[in-house]
């Protein structure tokens, strides 16, 4: 995380998009295009599909720019969420018949205290200098890994389970508990 993002006025660019100024979308693309593609590619893991999604996300940002309300959140967050959710919907759609995502409530009642046999190491060099770092730091390493595998890699519960070796129900319980702890910590 650098200060670069502070130099670029995302909110005013969105306001210009809302007024129909094509140049504003181009400025945004020049400034954030590579980062957006990086985020999307990490989730969908297919270059062609990732570019399609960035294309769709740019049109989406253009069309929905007038619904962005700077009083309710940051423009940069809004822009990245549009692209991320587009990517997430696309992979969940693509994998809807492959990914088994049971809603069986007994899944989540499994023991939350599953332990790996060996010491778990951080899967991410995750410190960004934000306040959230302290809260993530308070989570056990394996749980922090689950949360970041979901957010950064776009992995489903089942994929995280396969990736980490923790049972599916454990992964679900860990993520839910971690979110509630993060929220408490950030409050």
């Amino acid at each position: 995380m650098t200060d670069e993002s502070l130099e670029f006025d995302h909110a005013s660019v969105l306001a210009k998009c809302a007024r129909g100024e094509h140049d504003a979308l181009h400025q945004l693309y020049v400034y954030e295009g590579a980062r957006l593609l990086g985020v999307v590619l990490r989730i969908v893991k297919d270059r062609g599909m990732a570019e399609d999604i960035v294309h769709d996300a740019c049109l989406n940002i253009w069309q929905r720019a007038n619904s962005f309300d700077p009083a309710k959140g940051s423009a940069r967050t809004w822009i990245f969420s549009v692209a991320r959710h587009q990517a997430l919907n696309a992979i969940r759609y693509r994998d809807r018949e492959i990914t088994f995502d049971s809603n069986d409530p007994t899944d989540i009642d499994l023991d939350e205290h599953f332990q790996h046999s060996s010491v778990v190491e951080d899967a991410f060099d995750w410190q960004t200098g934000q306040r959230m770092d302290d809260c993530l730091h308070q989570l056990e390493t394996e749980r922090r890994n689950c949360v970041l595998h979901a957010y950064v890699d776009g992995l489903s519960h089942a994929e995280i389970s396969a990736h980490t070796g923790a049972p599916l129900g454990t992964v679900k319980a860990w993520i839910k508990r971690s979110l509630l702890r993060l929220r408490e910590c950030m409050a």
């Binding site: 693309y29 740019c58 970041l148 950064v152």
Partner: peptide, 28 residues
């Protein structure tokens, strides 16, 4: 979204292919 967005920086930027912007512009 606000809490997690800093962690988008954990991914490496990827330079889009030269044809992507012209394609977006045509769609626009």
């Amino acid at each position: 979204e606000e809490r997690f967005v800093p962690y988008t920086a954990l991914t490496q930027p990827v330079r889009p292919s030269d044809s992507l912007w012209p394609r977006i512009e045509r769609s626009l």
